[in-house]
């Protein structure tokens, strides 16, 4: 274990985000005796059950009753515990939105929520289980921190960081195996601080979650076409890293955001807010799920269908490259 690291997982690149989450939470259970884990009949699916196996007395499975689970989490936090809660993203963000906002966020209670099966990662389940709204909902709750880790290793880092954060945190992960983008865990993960995965000067691809991998793959293809793409892993959607965004606007003047979420209200919208408020011109495109309920299918097929996989990104870059973007001589004066 590297110095300062609070968790360690062998073969982290072979495990799903949920598997790493379950393992890391179990390890953190020793360091944080105030953790109480809660789930609603999804101990196995979300992997929070691993904590339950190690600490049965600190684990509560409420049955299929999400609203009660989030309400109980608020009560447990008020009693001095640190509840860690896991269910599918769609149930956290939509069914139990009010419990999360009013019972937890309003009082700024110390509850950590790790939601799996987000976006289209449960693509075969159909519309009732797809969740392309949660980033929008969660980032609109004052006090809530919103993190969308790119892979399993980043999930471990996010969970460890969340335990040190003194308030509510929402961490969004997928369902199955997502290929890793981070090769080691000690790349300096910090809540609110984006990670530059590779530098570039023609365009910046900003991804979160599985989108980061798609950006990396696209950057490889673009390089062969003679284009230099910067890739940013925007793991924290709130608070968002304004500095990284504005630097990318200044350096590359072309920005594409990539996320497994409705293009309204998600990470792309958060990035757009920063750019617009800064008054800086750039070519800009949000990739993600269009404002529609997704068709059924395997996640990779759906990412392709909705054009936010590597192919879709490359296609969008070639459109943006056709646009004339004026160099702004007075950039420094304007900021």
């Amino acid at each position: 274990m590297a110095e300062g690291m609070t968790w360690t997982v062998a073969d982290g690149d072979q495990l799903t985000q949920a598997e790493i989450y379950g393992e890391v939470l179990s390890q953190l259970g020793d360091k944080y005796p105030e953790i109480i884990a809660l789930t609603a009949d999804l101990a196995g699916s979300t992997k929070i059950g691993r904590f339950g196996k190690k600490f049965p007395d600190r684990f509560i499975n409420v049955g299929i009753a999400e609203n009660t689970m989030f309400g109980m989490a608020a009560g447990l936090a008020m009693a001095g515990f640190t509840p860690v809660v896991s269910t599918f993203a769609v149930f956290t963000a939509l069914r139990s939105a009010e419990q999360v906002r009013t019972d937890i966020c309003y009082q700024n209670l110390n509850v950590k929520i790790i939601s799996s099966h987000a976006g289209l990662s449960f693509g075969q389940a159909g519309s009732t289980h797809h969740c392309t709204e949660d980033i929008a909902v969660m980032r609109s709750f004052a006090n809530m921190i919103v993190i969308v880790p790119a892979d399993g290793i980043e999930t471990g880092n996010a969970v460890a960081a969340a335990m040190e954060w003194p308030g509510p945190v929402y961490i969004r992960i997928g369902r199955g195996f997502e290929p890793t983008v981070h090769t080691t865990q000690d790349y300096g993960f910090e809540i609110g601080k984006a990670v530059t995965m590779r530098d570039g000067s023609d365009v910046t691809l900003i991804g979160c979650g599985v989108g980061v991998k798609h950006c990396m793959q696209a950057a490889d293809v673009l390089q062969q076409q003679g284009l230099s793409a910067r890739v940013i892993d925007m793991h924290t959607i709130k608070p968002i890293d304004k500095e990284a965004i504005l630097k990318a606007v200044m350096d590359t003047r072309r920005i594409i955001t990539v996320e497994d979420h409705n293009i309204y209200g998600g990470m792309g919208s958060a990035v757009a807010d920063v750019i617009v408020e800064a008054g800086k011109a750039c070519a800009f495109k949000k990739l993600g799920v269009p404002d529609a309920y997704s068709i059924v299918g395997y996640p990779e097929d759906l990412y392709h269908y909705y054009k936010f996989d590597a192919d879709g990104i490359v296609e969008t870059v070639s459109e943006l490259m056709k646009m004339e973007i004026e160099e702004d001589e007075d950039w420094e004066d304007e900021t």
């Binding site: 159909g126 009732t128 289980h129 059924v296 299918g297 395997y298």
Partner: peptide, 27 residues
């Protein structure tokens, strides 16, 4: 359950004749 099929794991009232409500979110 295959890509593009009208049938996901949970039946969809907009895609499957005879299904009156898209359920799957329990309760």
């Amino acid at each position: 359950n295959k890509t593009g099929s009208p049938f996901g794991m949970h039946l969809d009232s907009l895609k499957v004749p005879g299904c009156d409500a898209s359920t799957g979110s329990l309760g």
